[in-house]
């Protein structure tokens, strides 16, 4: 890939999922923001075009709501099935989200317990098959297991979203080799999801071949959420550009960038 204007190069290859152009490659998770006001600042600073929401029991006393905020800022809503521990729960939650939000897109999460928050592979596959069969566009949160990611793709998931580390840990990419394997094999977009702690994690994910990064806690729970949102947006852009710029090979020995020829006679040689 060549080009003199980096922004034009990036713009020529936007994030596309299930045939729909999403645009920016940073997807925002809205969980953890201390207030809707801060969330609005985060959205503005991140430039994200898509953000996740959960489905929860209505609180009639709540002041304002996240849906109105996202709609007012022109951000696409991606409902998730956060908290579900069985395929049955996840399918019902997705159906509720489709009814409430008039979208058949869903970020599928089926976790094994409330401590590790790691995906339950068996329930996840069952839920993915069922939801794809019901016409959903499924973006599946998964372990960093290349085989499971491949199986999810085979079920018809529109994107696979391996975690770099358990949700909310900020540990970064614990197994970058597996993330690279997933990204190199997948025919659908790979979105690094969960575990991101700081901007360098997002850069690495993109350099490894991910198409996008989803960040929630690392932004919303940072001391300065809008500043971290801007950092993540820049990191995702930097990582994508580096991944497509053709990095130099790693070498065992040094390779001078400056020629040794035509040097002046040194005092040591006099």
């Amino acid at each position: 890939m060549t080009g003199t204007d980096p922004s034009a190069v990036m713009a020529s290859d936007p994030l596309v999922i299930a045939g729909e152009e999403i645009g920016p490659r940073l997807i925002l998770g809205t969980g953890g923001a201390p207030s809707l006001e801060v969330l609005g600042e985060v959205i503005e600073a991140s430039g994200a075009a898509m953000a996740t929401v959960a489905m929860r029991r209505l609180d009639p006393a709540a002041k304002g709501n996240v849906l109105d905020l996202l709609v007012s800022m022109g951000v696409r809503t991606l409902p998730n099935t956060a908290g579900c521990m069985t395929a049955k729960e996840a399918v019902l939650t997705a159906e509720m989200a489709r009814e409430a939000l008039e979208t058949n897109w869903v970020k599928l999460e089926v976790i094994a317990d409330d401590k590790m928050l790691l995906p339950d592979p068996l329930e996840l596959i069952d839920a993915a098959e069922e939801l794809v069969g019901r016409g959903f566009v499924v973006l599946a949160y998964t372990n960093d297991d290349p085989v499971l990611a491949w199986r999810l793709e085979q079920t018809g998931c529109a994107a696979v979203m391996p975690g770099g580390a358990p949700i909310g840990t900020g540990l970064g990419l614990c197994n970058p080799h597996n993330i690279e394997l997933i990204a190199s094999k997948a025919k659908v977009p790979v979105v690094l999801d969960a575990g991101v702690g700081t901007a360098s994690d997002a850069v690495l994910a993109m350099e490894l071949g991910c198409e996008a990064v989803l960040v929630a806690s690392a932004i919303t729970r940072a001391e300065n959420p809008p500043l971290m949102a801007a950092a993540m947006a820049g990191a995702v852009r930097a990582g994508w550009m580096a991944a497509h710029a053709g990095r130099i090979p790693r070498r065992r020995h040094a390779l001078a960038s400056t020629s040794f020829s035509d040097m002046a006679e040194t005092f040591a040689e006099q």
Partner: peptide
């Protein structure tokens, strides 16, 4: 169950 979108994910 009466559900609505909430911050999450």
């Amino acid at each position: 169950e009466l559900l609505a979108p909430a911050q999450g994910g």
